[in-house]
């Protein structure tokens, strides 16, 4: 079967982690995997730029990590389960980190979740939203 990577591009506000993205983000995600070890977490947080320079990441990927710009990291091939090692290093929860990718602050995001989450209505298609 011929793979169809285009089919996901109409989902608004969503980056699907495909095998192509996995190739693009390989070293970014491998850097994240290294943070499973406490010693590496300490070393990374102590000297971020130096630590990142040990990995074959693009300059853009490194900058996105330094900026904690998670959406940018997704765009550059990162996957959220890998990226979670960055925010876990700093003791942040998924809710705290994930909310930064939305247009809400963490309190507003929490309130939305307690209210039953984001309603799918209006969030199915970029075309429908006039974004495409």
């Amino acid at each position: 079967m011929k793979p169809d990577f285009e089919q996901f591009k109409d989902i608004p506000g969503t980056t699907i982690f495909t095998i192509e993205k996995a190739r693009q983000g390989f070293w970014l995600n491998q850097f994240c995997m290294s943070l499973r070890e406490e010693a590496n977490r300490k070393r990374f947080l102590g000297a971020e730029r130096e630590y990142l320079d040990e990995w074959q990441m693009s300059e853009q990927q490194k900058q996105a990590v330094l900026d904690r710009d998670f959406q940018k990291m997704l765009d550059l091939g990162g996957n959220v389960y890998f990226l979670s090692k960055i925010f876990a290093s700093e003791g942040l929860s998924y809710v705290q980190a994930v909310s930064t990718m939305t247009d809400m602050n963490v309190e507003q995001y929490q309130a939305m979740m307690l209210g039953g989450g984001r309603n799918v209505e209006g969030w199915r298609s970029k075309k429908e939203r006039g974004e495409a």
């Binding site: 989902i11 608004p12 506000g13 969503t14 980056t15 998670f70 959406q71 997704l74 959220v80 998924y94 994930v98 909310s99 990718m101 939305t102 247009d103 995001y109 939305m112 979740m113 039953g116 989450g117 984001r118 309603n119 799918v120 969030w123």
Partner: peptide, 13 residues
């Protein structure tokens, strides 16, 4: 249902 990334994060259906 859950989405933990992007501007659409927090989706529940």
């Amino acid at each position: 249902s859950h989405q933990i990334q992007g501007a659409r994060a927090g989706l529940i259906n």
